[in-house]
Design a protein around this nucleic acid. Structure first.
Length: 479
DNA sequence: ATGTCC
């Protein structure tokens, strides 16, 4: 059924209600597994990808990246672009944790200079609120959250929680335009205003890492990354706000889709025309969620800077934001499609933007190589810094992988692993883990994920992303 | 992902 159309690129021709081909960037074994899942399971990323290919106004191809796995309606590790005139906006194409993403901070110390790791782990665990329902340190009223939703990371910086130089190295400078807080429900705001600056739970984490190996020393140098250096990754999103926006708009879009008479392949793919009141309002709400996530990571970066200043006497400005990028988004972008410039809404769910060399929206300092893509590993395996390529701009709407990708559901992982065992095996390999929930640790066991090494290798073989550096975990903080 | 069901 799959036709191999390139190195690590496989295509399914349109059939039935599919309007465009479905394409998977992956190695042969991953593709075989996707086909086995489709044949043997209700819960299939490939079936979801075919459904996405049926949505009105989809442009080019429905894409899955090597970290693909099933999500709500739309695969995680999926990318789909829709024409702004006759396309749709899909709630499931963004996911519940709007603009969940990673911020990478570089520390002016080598990993060796960090010294004793247990104390560092304790200090970070104490400083960064985490876990389900945790409360943040940014004091604000529910009415002030409207400003945060409009301004994003700059709101936090304006409160003294960060540095002005952080902003240019955040995707969209930490503020997506078109964010009208009126499109976000009061309930969403009420759930969030105490939670800004919290890590959350699930796959969210804070990690201290060592730059373990450079694959592209020239690009690493542009990003200011040296072998042996210590860095910190913060993986979190828009918390309860994004989740509530998702719930609210699933309901709104479910009704709107029927009213507009949209032919939907699957109930979970609730959507509305881009060019409709509901579509425009959802895109505004997504921009608000994105800004909330940028602000959230900004506040956490500030807390981290405080810990590092206390322990090592390093100044806040010497702890530099390398980049901050989301992986659950729907945004208006211009792309060349078969030689024609087109205005599109690009949905990336469990996929990052990956603008290659020379792209206008890449920060000036990084423009020669493209912006960094931050690929999260698991607690026990490496993360990667990658970058986009001209080929990825043409063939993947400038998109990148976001992480290892789950291999087992949370439930299956919790059944298979014990939190204590995971803790001790990580400890044995020199990784200090602090977590609020042992069940969460079991759900997040490295064995519950795909092999991140194979994921990044497949993205590189496909020609859409390039490895820049590998980051090895030393300290892990989990919700 | 998520005050894991208003």
């Amino acid at each position: 059924m799959f036709e191999r159309i390139g190195d690590a690129e496989w295509q399914i021709a349109p059939s039935g209600a599919m309007l465009v081909p479905a394409v998977v960037f992956a190695d042969r074994e991953m593709v075989d597994e996707l086909q086995r899942d489709e044949a043997g399971s209700e819960w299939s990323a490939l079936r979801q990808l075919r459904n996405v290919a049926c949505l009105p106004g989809i442009v080019g191809r429905a894409l899955a990246l090597p970290d693909v796995h099933p999500g709500y309606g739309f695969p995680i590790g999926g990318v789909a672009a829709f024409d702004v005139k006759d396309g749709v906006v899909v709630v499931g194409g963004v996911g519940f944790d709007i603009n969940c993403g990673v911020r990478l901070l570089s520390i002016p110390l080598s990993a060796d200079e960090l010294g004793e790791r247990a104390g560092l782990a304790d200090a970070l665990f104490a400083a960064v609120p985490a876990g389900l329902g945790s409360k943040g340190s940014l004091r604000m009223t529910v009415s002030e959250i409207d400003r945060l939703l409009r301004e994003g990371a700059a709101f936090a910086v304006g409160r003294g929680l960060g540095l002005p130089e952080d902003l240019p190295v955040i995707e969209e400078s930490g503020c997506v335009s078109g964010a009208d807080p009126e499109t976000v429900s009061e309930r969403a705001k009420q759930r969030q205003f105490r939670q800004v600056g919290t890590l959350g739970s699930g796959n969210h984490y804070l990690e201290v890492q060592r730059v373990d190996e450079l694959f592209d020393p020239a690009a690493a140098s542009v990003y200011g990354l040296d072998a042996g250096q210590a860095v910190i990754s913060v993986h979190t999103g828009s918390r309860a706000l994004g989740h509530q926006i998702g719930q609210d708009y699933l309901k709104i879009m479910g009704e709107a889709g029927r009213r507009y008479g949209l032919p939907l392949p699957e109930r979970e793919l609730a959507c509305a025309p881009v060019d409709s009141d509901e579509g425009r309002r959802y895109l505004s709400a997504v921009a608000c969620g994105a800004n909330c996530a940028f602000a959230n990571r900004q506040v956490i970066a500030h807390l981290v800077r405080g810990v590092l200043a206390d322990r090592y006497g390093v100044s806040p400005s010497s702890v530099r934001t390398v980049y901050d990028i989301g992986h659950n988004n729907a945004k208006r972008e211009t792309h060349d499609v078969d030689g024609v410039r087109r205005e599109l809404i690009v949905h990336r769910k469990g996929s990052t933007r990956a603008l290659g060399p020379g792209a206008e929206d890449v920060p000036a300092a990084y423009r020669s190589v493209g912006h960094p893509i931050l690929v999260g590993g698991t607690m026990g395996t490496s993360s990667y810094v990658m970058r986009g390529t001209p080929d990825g701009m043409r063939r993947a709407f400038g998109s990148g992988v976001h992480g290892a990708g789950r291999a087992l559901s949370r439930k299956k992982a919790a059944k298979k692993y014990w939190g204590e065992d995971v803790l001790s095996s990580l400890h044995a390999s020199g990784i200090e883990l602090r977590a609020h929930s042992l069940r969460g640790v079991a759900e997040e066991a490295p064995g519950a994920y795909k092999d991140v090494e194979r994921v990044v290798a497949a993205a590189e073989d496909a020609g859409i992303n390039r490895r820049v550096a590998r980051l090895r975990p030393l300290v892990v903080i989990k919700g």
